[in-house]
């Protein structure tokens, strides 16, 4: 996947050291909600080109970890975790809200279990949404062309005018993936992307992820499903707020 940074002046610069392939570096990450400490010292490194599955029991903190890595656990007062999270070479705690938002906009795609499409926008406009918040948005024609390509990539080239309410669950998730792919991100963060889908549809999504991975995209997938885990290059298990196992699945 070609680098976007040459065409995106306002995006944070890539790490100067191209030799380091670390896309995500989490060190001694702790996070508490009130009195309960959900993450108790996480150390995790994900390299460029990996496809990592994050598993664990319900309530083990998978979504929490994913949100922190994606820079979403942030409010006016600052980040509410302890430890250090580096994303594409940036300590996310050091970035301003604008810079972190620009980083998400250009380099990170999110896919959620609940799809989170905007009901009042057409599929095409949903896919175009990241362009609305780009520091230097693409022209309308170019953006639409890209969105159309993204929709075709997920097999929904003919649904551009449809409303999300007119789509099946699998189709909705594919529109959400197309939205995440609009700016050809470096990293795709998915929180149980197949959780609301039947086996067949889920399988299609998994194959789509594998295809994207082959094209060079780095993926971190939170999942319950063994078959999703099996499709990845590495498995990370979360238990009691710690990473208890990280293994390369058998080839």
């Amino acid at each position: 996947m070609p680098s976007e940074s040459s065409t995106v002046p306002t995006a944070p610069p890539r790490p100067s050291d191209q030799a380091t392939q670390d896309l995500i570096t989490v060190s001694n990450l702790r996070k508490r909600f009130g009195d309960t400490e959900v993450l108790r010292g996480i150390d995790l490194t994900i390299q460029r080109g990996e496809m990592v599955a994050l598993t664990g029991r319900s309530g083990s903190g998978k979504s929490t970890l994913l949100h922190i890595i994606g820079g979403l656990d942030y409010r006016q007062g600052g980040h509410s975790y302890e430890g250090k999270v580096e994303l594409l070479g940036h300590d996310i705690a050091q970035l301003t809200d604008a810079a972190l938002s620009a980083l998400r906009n250009r380099h990170i795609g999110f896919v959620f279990q609940a799809f989170h499409l905007l009901a009042h926008l057409s599929c095409l406009d949903n896919v175009l949404l990241p362009n609305a918040f780009a520091a230097s948005p693409l022209g309308q024609a170019e953006a639409e062309q890209r969105a159309q390509l993204a929709l075709e990539r997920v097999g929904l080239g003919d649904k551009r005018r449809s409303r999300p309410s007119e789509l099946s669950g699998g189709q909705k998730q594919r529109v959400a993936i197309a939205r995440a792919l609009l700016f050809r991100p470096t990293l795709l963060l998915c929180d149980e992307p197949t959780g609301n889908l039947d086996d067949y549809t889920g399988q299609q999504i998994i194959e789509l992820f594998q295809e994207l991975h082959r094209d060079g995209l780095t993926l971190l997938l939170v999942t319950h499903e063994p078959r999703v885990a099996q499709a990845t290059t590495r498995l990370v298990r979360l238990q009691s707020g710690r990473i208890v196992e990280t293994e390369e699945p058998a080839p």
Partner: peptide, 16 residues
């Protein structure tokens, strides 16, 4: 809330 969260996720800043 979800909608605003999605906007933030795809790159909207607090200012946006």
């Amino acid at each position: 809330r979800h909608e605003l969260g999605v906007m933030r996720a795809v790159g909207a800043s607090q200012r946006d």
